[in-house]
Each structure stands twice: as structure tokens, then as C-alpha cells.
């Protein structure tokens, strides 16, 4: 059973790899339709495989399937879309689609932190930089991917190696996020200890050194970024006031 199951996983991943290969931008005849058909087939097959081994189809699992499909689909779009702005936005969608999965795993703090930090701050700046740098038409490197076969093959091998390990997992059908659903639908009197306080306690006791080191590292990175981006102004021009009308910033005429 396990060997068969692994081979079925490999087969679906090969299907998905083929779909990605067809979807990647290239010159010549468009193979988008074939890519889409293959991709939908691969996704459906993966979901059926998941359903047959680990998950049933009842209850909160619906959320798992929905967000998993959206996450995988938009992740593929991130690398296959021809317009960089859309790629970045699909990345945002991937992040947003992963949050329900984390909430189903009772990691709600991680889920919201992901949204605030990734979708809310980092990706906005990505989107922004891409928007600023891509004003004209599409350059060649966006319309044709470099080494699509090698890239797809490498991705397939990595993913299949990870997914193959799923065969070793015990075969029991449960509902993902049983707890989360129960917590959301029962009266608020019987709350348990929530995930956030556990994360906080662990961070401040067991992993406090790592936590502090990460903070210092980020601070160093920030100081470094500021130091690198700071323009060097000769001392005399920086000190003497130059009230020139029409100059934006410090030298601007107020009225």
C-alpha cells in the first residue's frame, strides 16, 4: 500500500511539474491551455490522494482543501505569470491562503504574524518596487523563462522527495483543526490556554537567547541599510542654509 501510494504521489507530482513547464512563459506557440488542464488534474489528484490517506471530506477539512488549492494554484502563478506585478500579488495571495492552514493547525499567532509582516509590510514594498521599475512594456526576460526544464525538474525532485516522506506517516483519518472549530463554536466560558500565550511563554523562557539574538541581528541589518543608503553630503553644503525658493525639503520656502 505504502509503495503504491508513494508512486501515485510521484505520478501526480510529475503531472504537476509538466503543468508548470507548460505554463512557464516561453516564445512560440502558447501551451497555456494544456498547462492549465494538466495543473487542475494534478491538483485534483493530489487532493484525492490526501483525502484517501489522511483526511476525510467532512467538517473543517473543506477549509483545508479550499485554501490548499488556492495556495498551490497561486504559488504556481507566482513563477509562471508574465507580469511581475501580478507575480508579487499572487505571492500575497499565497501568503493569505496559507494562513487558514496555520489556523487549522492551531497556530493562529503565526498565521496573523505572517499576514502582518509578510503580506502587510514586506510584500507591499516588493509590489511597490516592481511597480516603480516596470513602467513600460515587458522586457524579454519576463516573456521567456531561462532553463525552464531544469528548473521544473529540480523543483519536482525536491517536492517529490518531501512528499514521498508522507507515505511513512501513519494512516489515520482525522479532521484538521478539530480544536480550532470547537473553540470557535463553543461558548466562551470554557476556553483553554491559547496558542499565543504558549508562544509568548516559550519565546521568553526557553528560546529567549535566540529571540534576543534575532532582534539584535535585525537591528544590525537595519543600521547597515541606513548606513548604506545614506548620501554623503560635503560638510559646507550641509551646514550653510540655502533658502532657494522652489527646492523641496529642508530648503523650501514655507509660503
Amino acid at each position: 500500500m505504502n509503495t503504491e501510494w508513494s508512486f501515485m504521489v510521484y505520478a501526480t507530482f510529475a503531472l504537476g511539474a509538466a503543468a508548470v513547464y507548460f505554463l512557464l512563459p516561453h516564445t512560440g506557440r502558447s501551451t497555456k491551455t494544456a498547462g492549465h488542464v494538466l495543473g487542475v488534474a494534478a491538483l485534483a489528484a493530489t487532493m484525492v490522494l490526501c483525502a484517501s490517506k489522511f483526511l476525510g471530506t467532512e467538517g473543517a477539512n473543506i477549509f483545508f482543501y479550499l485554501s490548499a488549492v488556492v495556495a498551490v494554484g497561486s504559488a504556481v502563478k507566482v513563477i509562471t505569470h508574465e507580469k511581475p506585478v501580478y507575480s508579487a500579488l499572487y505571492f500575497v495571495l499565497t501568503v493569505l491562503a496559507i494562513t487558514p492552514l496555520l489556523i487549522l493547525q492551531e497556530a493562529e499567532f503565526l498565521a496573523v504574524a505572517l499576514v502582518i509582516i509578510y503580506a502587510g509590510a514586506i510584500l507591499v514594498t516588493y509590489v511597490f518596487v516592481i511597480m516603480l521599475s516596470q513602467q513600460g512594456g515587458q522586457p524579454m526576460h519576463d516573456r521567456q523563462s531561462r532553463e525552464p526544464f531544469l528548473a521544473v525538474f529540480g523543483g519536482f525532485v525536491t517536492m517529490a522527495a518531501i512528499a514521498g516522506q508522507m507515505a511513512a506517516l501513519p494512516e489515520e483519518k482525522g479532521i484538521v483543526g478539530d480544536f480550532a472549530v470547537a473553540a470557535a463554536t463553543t461558548a466562551i466560558n470554557d476556553r483553554g490556554v491559547d496558542n499565543t500565550s504558549l508562544v509568548g511563554t516559550a519565546m521568553m523562557t526557553e528560546y529567549v537567547v535566540a529571540f534576543e539574538v534575532a532582534g539584535v541581528l535585525l537591528l544590525i541589518a537595519m543600521v547597515g541599510a541606513i548606513a548604506m543608503s545614506k548620501k554623503r553630503v560635503p560638510a559646507e553644503t550641509a551646514l550653510t542654509p540655502m533658502p532657494v525658493p522652489g527646492k523641496v525639503g529642508r530648503e523650501v520656502e514655507p509660503f
Binding site: 493562529e108 496573523v112 504574524a113 502587510g120 470557535a184 461558548a187
Partner: peptide, 28 residues
Amino acid sequence: DVAAQVADPGIGLLYILGIGSLSVYGVV
């Protein structure tokens, strides 16, 4: 019996912050 609130997650405050940080996409 119930709480007069749509949802009461343990991360309610962060939820509002997260949603608020997404609103910048509409503008951009």
C-alpha cells in the same frame, strides 16, 4: 450562553492590525 461578538479569537487585536495592514493594497 453566548458572547455578543462575531468571533473572539485569542489574537483579536493582531487580527485587526493584520487586516489594517492589508488595506494599503487597495490604495497601491
